[in-house]
Design a protein around this nucleic acid. Sequence first.
DNA 1: CGCATAATTAACTCAGCGGTTAATTAACCT
DNA 2: AGGTTAATTAACCGCTGAGTTAATTATGCG
Lengths: 132, 132
Amino acid sequence: MQDQLSLTFAALADPTRRAILAQLSKGQANVSDLAKPFLKDMSLPAITKHLKVLEKAGLITKTREAQWRPCRLNGEAFKDVADWIEQYRIFWEQSFDRLEAYLETVTQRTSPKGKEHGREDSVQRDPHHPDL
Amino acid sequence: MQDQLSLTFAALADPTRRAILAQLSKGQANVSDLAKPFLKDMSLPAITKHLKVLEKAGLITKTREAQWRPCRLNGEAFKDVADWIEQYRIFWEQSFDRLEAYLETVTQRTSPKGKEHGREDSVQRDPHHPDL
DNA sequence: CGCATAATTAACTCAGCGGTTAATTAACCT
DNA sequence: AGGTTAATTAACCGCTGAGTTAATTATGCG
């Protein structure tokens, strides 16, 4: 899995971890604080592991204070994700426009419309984006 | 893995799949077109599987045209990711810009939120009350 | 010291992912 | 019909991720 961005996306691909991040967005918290909402569903070591994943992904920072490990969000990893997704903005904005256009042409139709075997020259529009 | 957002993040957590998306951002393409850059590193069935992951994640749409399967990006899943990450914008802007820009756009929403385990005099900088 | 609290580590299970090769489906073309 | 191209499916393999329980480390306190 190597690269940092993959690690970050992988870390985000879990509802428990996203919930932990949501909790941390309200302020710093210790491991047991973070674990509390989940202890009916899973053990403390499970949370420790989740935190380790989040830490390696750069999404959180864990410090030491006596026997506690206060955790806080680390903005930079979020920025990496935001920067990556940003280059696709045109696509989600575009599809919203298309949805509206579509809804206007179809408001009274009932059949979802099977597709034609036409030349399908309707290329997707090419904003010619810088890649990666 | 259940929920859609987790599926989407998981799909993005792979460099090959992100490269496929980058390629699709330049326009619609068939499976073998998409596979071409990777065929030195992996087989065609591997690409088929990657495309299936992307499709289930909602990131692409695969249609049929004779024996070809033209693929295109599907903006909505990107929007879901963008919307999710947006709620953490304050954290990555805080890291760089000291939040000043943000404060101009948001001037309410306070939550003092005393933390338990009083040990901390070093409560995390509350993003809503930054000490700048 | 002795004990409680906070958290991690160890050792293990199990499912699913990413990849393979080989076989199969599906459409087109003479 | 037979052959070619496009793509998927099947069956398999090794690794890792998410979880468990039990043991261990580290700190604070009476």
